[in-house]
Simulated scan of single mutants.
Amino acid sequence: MDARLPAHLEVSALIRAAEAAGGFGMVIQKGERDAGTILVVLLENGRDGRAYERMPQMDGTRAWTCSKREEMADSRAFSEYVQRRAGQDPDLWVIELDTARPERLIGIGA
């Protein structure tokens, strides 16, 4: 069985990690305190948005996967995607982390 950190603790840790790296983190939408899922919006200097969510893998684990990238030609589509995901799942936490190389905060490209 996969031991899971309560969502509110993981969200707090991610925001603190962004701040410790000289960046900024904030909660966009609060989800279910313990068992909620998390959508992380990663930015660098307020640009180049990437939305990451944990997706089930073939081996039964859940890995951070980029579900949407902001396209410069249509940045509205990225915002609409994040809003749509938030509206689909009331248990979903949506957080934004803005720092240099933000993927390292979720263990990607560290």
Rank of each mutant, 00 (worst) to 15 (best):
A3N: 10
D91W: 10
R84I: 09
V41A: 01
S12W: 10
A63N: 14
G87F: 02
R62L: 14
P56M: 05
Y52A: 01
G107F: 03
L105I: 02
M55K: 15
E53C: 06
I28F: 13
D48A: 10
V41W: 00
E80S: 11
K30T: 11
Y81I: 03
G107V: 06
L92Y: 00
L5A: 11
I15R: 04
A73Q: 13
W93G: 02
T37A: 13
L105R: 05
N45A: 14
D48C: 09
E96T: 12
A13N: 14
D74F: 12
Q29I: 08
I15W: 04
L5W: 10
G23N: 00
A110R: 12
D2Y: 15
W93Q: 00
T61M: 11
V82P: 04
A110Y: 08
W64L: 02
F78S: 07
Y52D: 02
Y81M: 07
L97F: 05
Y81C: 05
M26P: 07
S67N: 08
F24A: 11
K68R: 13
V40T: 08
G107Y: 05
G31C: 02
E96R: 12
E71T: 14
Q83C: 14
I108Q: 00
K30W: 11
I95T: 04
A20G: 07
A20N: 10
L92G: 00
R33W: 09
L43F: 08
G46L: 04
T65N: 09
E10N: 10
M55L: 15
M55E: 14
R47G: 11
G22D: 00
G36I: 04
A21T: 05
D74I: 11
G36Y: 04
R104T: 03
D91G: 13
L42K: 01
T61Q: 09
E103S: 11
